[in-house]
Design a protein around this nucleic acid. Structure first.
Length: 508
RNA sequence: GGGGCCGUAGCUCAAUGGUUAGAGCAGGGGACUCAUAAUCCCUUGGUUGUGAGUUCGAUCCUCACCGGCCCUACCA
């Protein structure tokens, strides 16, 4: 059986969940649902990153112990994911004992393999930021944020011998052309490697809020090294329930473009250092950008319209879970940046969901009501709609399989459009009740049934609701995609429910 | 400062070293009235950021410039 292991980054708990987090997580969720629908064994993991200085500071500001603060914020992420119908199989918190154990096992392995050594880190330190800057990033030795002079500081640190992996990384990239997608992002990572790699400091003595270094109790691991290892925590690396062999060869990380370096350079090198194959695939996504205006007051703090001001839960409350999922998946292609706006959400909702999909389901149900006494007819095998359906199924599959939910949904909407056109061309509402009407409506119902399957990774609830209204039993996902989407399975004879509009138009 | 990405129709985005650069939305015209005033058909609209170069031919390759953005020790 094929397997699919997909992860989101674990999210840093100094910040509340916002639309950017949701964008990444919804995409990962849809991919997980897609592969489950295809019968693959799927593991979908997300979580929260809870160590590091910023978390400790955020906790202090809020008068809490770091763990208490992390508990609180981590919960908010899980609430957000519940609101968005995220079907994660595991949720990693880096403060969990299992994670600490895996981090220590993994990095001890790297240490034993001789890729970690002790040295003095010298850097330019900004007292206000409590952070180091490189000479390159600090203009004239001043902090880029505070414009104050930086002071030379020294700290004894453990270092990871990243420089030893330049050739291996290049070879790995050469041998795995699709290691990082899209290719523009791959090239970015690759050219960074070609530019030369420096060893990196991976521990801290200045803070205590982290995973202790097992061979030196004065140090904790720098938060990124702790965090990256979560992808192995979830599959039990170094612990009794170790399932690395089973899942790691099928691993996919979905990440934002700003953390390419960590995931596409450091992380594969760390895996190599531990004697492990790198993650098999990294899918990079872009950022949602807020055009800068027209966010309603309830959505954004006055004056500042930043993506981070928009809480996912507010969006699902206002527009519904599935419409927001649809918007996030459909509006921008994964890998590029996209615009985020409420206008665009409403436009997608009204045109794609209300006018095209919702209205299609409603008009078919209505004509079945008036011409067939509400009893569903069956499709015919040589329907002209069949080819549209088969094309949509093929193209949607291709889209989902290449991490392009946008393309998968676009192909699906072609079938919706063709079905609306098919109805116009045959005008069953003008016909006398009888065989001719039955054929047209049976075909339309079959197309709707297939649409329900095709949208299920994106809009699981709506998918199931359509399934139910056209009188089908069980869950959409009870059978595999390939079985479900072959033409001619719809069997009439039962009652069709018209029901309330699936997507009431937003008229505001 | 160094490295990199992007700039295509009013808007959001596709596409390819080669016939008239595509789609959705918005705009215009028509049809229909089963349906959530939804749907269907037709249609306006681009010197593909600017300037050079390579080429028989460039939106796609090279260089420069302009504009936006990302990374450069902890924001998806």
């Amino acid at each position: 059986m094929a397997r699919f292991y997909i992860t989101t980054p674990i999210f840093y708990v100094n910040d509340a969940p916002h639309v950017g987090h949701a964008y990444c997580t919804v995409n990962a969720d849809a991919m997980a649902r897609w592969y489950r629908l295809n019968g693959d064994e799927v593991k979908f993991v997300t979580g929260t990153d809870e160590h590091g200085q910023k978390v400790a500071e955020a906790a202090e500001r809020n008068g809490l112990a770091p763990l208490a603060w992390a508990d609180q914020t981590s919960l908010r992420f899980r609430e957000a994911w519940n609101a968005l119908d995220i079907s994660y199989d595991d949720f990693i918190r880096t403060t969990e004992p299992r994670h600490q154990e895996t981090v220590q096992k993994f990095l001890s392995k790297v240490y034993e393999n001789g890729y970690i050594y002790k040295d003095v880190y010298r850097g330019l330190y900004c007292v206000s930021c409590e952070d180091y800057y490189t000479e390159e990033s600090a203009d004239e030795l001043k902090c880029p944020i505070h414009a104050k002079p930086l002071t030379e500081m020294e700290e004894e640190n453990w270092f990871f011998k990243l420089s030893a992996f330049e050739d291996q990384l290049r070879d790995y990239y050469d041998g795995h052309p699709d290691f990082v997608t899209p290719h523009t992002k791959r090239n970015e990572a690759y050219s960074f490697i070609k530019g030369g790699l420096k060893d990196i400091s991976i521990t801290r003595t200045s803070i205590k809020w982290g995973v202790p270094v097992p061979w030196d109790d004065q140090h904790v691991f720098y938060v990124w090294y702790d965090a990256l290892v979560n992808y192995l925590t979830a599959i039990g690396y170094g612990r009794e329930d170790d399932e690395v062999e089973k899942w790691w060869p099928h691993s996919h990380h979905l990440i934002g473009k700003e953390i390419i370096r960590f995931h596409c350079v450091w992380w594969p090198a760390m895996c190599m250092a531990a004697g492990l194959e790198p993650v098999s695939h990294v899918q990079v996504h872009g950022w949602l950008l807020v055009g800068g205006q027209k966010l309603s007051k309830t959505m954004a703090a006055e004056g500042s319209v930043r993506l981070t001001d928009i809480a996912p839960v507010q969006l699902t409350t206002e527009y519904g879970v599935d419409p927001i999922r649809y918007y996030l998946l459909r509006e921008t292609s994964l890998g590029n940046d996209g615009d985020f706006s409420l206008e665009a959400i409403i436009a997608r909702y009204n045109t794609d969901l209300a006018n095209n999909l919702g209205n299609l389901v409603a008009r078919v149900a209505a004509v079945v009501g008036s011409k067939c006494e509400g009893i569903a007819p069956s499709p015919v095998m040589d329907s002209s709609l069949r080819q549209s359906a088969e094309t949509a199924v093929r193209e949607a599959s291709a889209g989902w399989n290449r991490f392009a939910p946008q393309a998968g949904l676009e192909a699906t909407w072609n079938l919706i459009g063709d079905t609306n056109a098919y109805l116009e061309n045959h005008a069953p509402w003008k016909m006398e009740p009888g065989e001719e009407v039955a054929v047209v409506l049976g075909d339309a119902l079959e197309a709707i049934r297939i649409v329900a399957v095709l949208i299920s990774p994106a809009m699981p609830s709506i998918s199931q609701e359509i399934w139910r209204r056209i009188g089908l039993a069980g869950e959409v996902s009870d059978e595999l995609f390939a079985t479900r989407t072959s033409w001619g399975q719809f069997r009439g004879g039962h009652r069709i429910e018209k029901g309330e509009p699936l997507f009431p138009r937003i008229t505001d």
